[in-house]
Nucleic acid binder design. Sequence first.
DNA 1: TAGCCATCTACGTGTTTCGCGTAGATGAAA
DNA 2: TTTCATCTACGCGAAACACGTAGATGGCTA
Lengths: 219, 219
Amino acid sequence: MNRIKIILVDDHQIVRDGIKALLSDTSYINIIGEAKSAYEFFDLLKIETPDVVLLDISLPKMSGIEVSKILSAEFPEIKKLMLSMYVSEDFIFNALKSGIDGYLPKNTTQEELLFAIKEVYEGREYFNKSISDTILKSYVKNAKYGNTVSDNNLGSLTKREHEILFYVVEGLSNPKIAEILSISVRTVETHKTSILRKLDLHSIVDLVKFAIKNNIIEL
Amino acid sequence: MNRIKIILVDDHQIVRDGIKALLSDTSYINIIGEAKSAYEFFDLLKIETPDVVLLDISLPKMSGIEVSKILSAEFPEIKKLMLSMYVSEDFIFNALKSGIDGYLPKNTTQEELLFAIKEVYEGREYFNKSISDTILKSYVKNAKYGNTVSDNNLGSLTKREHEILFYVVEGLSNPKIAEILSISVRTVETHKTSILRKLDLHSIVDLVKFAIKNNIIEL
DNA sequence: TAGCCATCTACGTGTTTCGCGTAGATGAAA
DNA sequence: TTTCATCTACGCGAAACACGTAGATGGCTA
């Protein structure tokens, strides 16, 4: 069995150290890199290709869920194991929708973490019991009250539109976004129009609320 | 009267023991569980449903305020009584915003603790005198100096500005707001300018985030 | 009472954004 | 090869924003 190549993405030094300590004496695991932000991670990805990414859900600027979405679209072969302090329904649903392969709370045990890594590495999914309970509970609730699971059309956005969406809800002006992306202001406007249309939203106010609900930005 | 079911959440063994000692010889109180972290507490919540939670404000990882927010959202029927070493304005304001039902300093008496538990159990609020004094003092200070609020500057907004703010973050356009309030669009714009200036914000995106943080709108 | 001040109202001007429509270039898929 | 999605860009009129000014009103107080 080849050693499983892993990249850690978490903004807290202590957490990264903790995970490294948990994994260090396991012969078949090889931590090839770590990043404290989405940007760092994507830079790292240019020179290293991991088998599994351990993703913190709450990262500064771009959330782990956003990272997961992009990975799902661009590098579907990389497995994504999400670590989170939160086990609330919203977080879990959004994480699921972003295409993650597993989800663990941060107070997990070494055994569970190792098991989860092996599971996702071998192409299966792994969800911590409290996570699957939450999912189950939600299904039961929906079945009971006839509610539909909140759905969105984030997946229908293109990579470029995701990028624009992110800058918009960060509060950047159109000219600023145009400058960053080296495109014309008119193009930024066109993308924004497409985003609002695809998400069936009708104002920037709605877009910001949508972004917060879907963990694209943090409050 | 049914016995009031209580869960203690505090990361210090000694504090938990102290509270248990304070409550042990009271017939109508039943401590059904204790947790030393938010995680433990939420795990406990899957098997036990308390009437009242005694929450320490400072917990490792997830603070008591965070716990309170989640409880308010997911289990609004569970009453939340916060215990804190701190009586500073900031803590109190944040605790209030998280939806707690009562707030006590840790050096409270047995009588006061029992009274507070009964009050919140029966659907009322209870704030220790030093807490309400702090709140009162803050209000007086605001009235006196106008805009030196520690937490945010919401208090410095006029009634009209509050009104406009609400409509704006609801996603209404300026002409629509003008129509509703029977004032000119230009006036709406002026108010919006004042709001942004007073709150030290620089875009509608920031304003929406601010409004969500301050419970002006729900997601 | 007179003066001060906060509040609500409104406008001017120039820049930016929005809504709606059109459209060329490119690359991947059928 | 044709088709389709995507990214790019512009025109135009309406709306929104930034920054400034300013009249009317009503409450407080020197």
